[in-house]
């Protein structure tokens, strides 16, 4: 199975992005799906999308760019409110991606 690639972005690439990364890693582990997550600051997103070619982007708050990649607001992970619901719909998207298998 190929790896799902994700970028987690926040203001300084320290606190919120790490929080999102850790939580996402746990959730992927639970579902036994391989994942590779990179962190960056908001300003680095466009460059990172080109070089790392992620399948999804998670932002701590609104991501201020138009991207070709699906963007998720990581608020539910940061606040803990509505997190299950968000993961449920997110992992449906992940499943679709894995089934489509276009690389």
């Amino acid at each position: 199975m190929r790896k799902v690639k994700i970028i987690c972005a926040c203001a300084a690439a320290i606190a919120q992005s790490t929080m999102m990364q850790m939580r996402l890693q746990d959730e992927f582990e639970k579902r036994d799906i391989p994942v590779q997550i990179e962190k960056c600051i908001f300003a680095e997103i466009p460059g990172k999308v080109e070089s790392f070619k992620p399948n999804f982007v998670f932002g701590a708050g609104d991501v201020p760019y138009e991207l070709d990649v699906p963007v998720y607001n990581g608020f539910p992970i940061i606040t803990g409110i509505g997190m299950e619901a968000m993961f449920e719909s997110f992992f449906e998207d992940v499943q679709k991606l894995l089934e489509s298998n276009i690389d």
Partner: peptide, 11 residues
């Protein structure tokens, strides 16, 4: 109110 990091105000 859920208290979170102020960096969010960047938006």
């Amino acid at each position: 109110l859920i208290g979170i990091d102020g960096a969010i105000i960047l938006g």
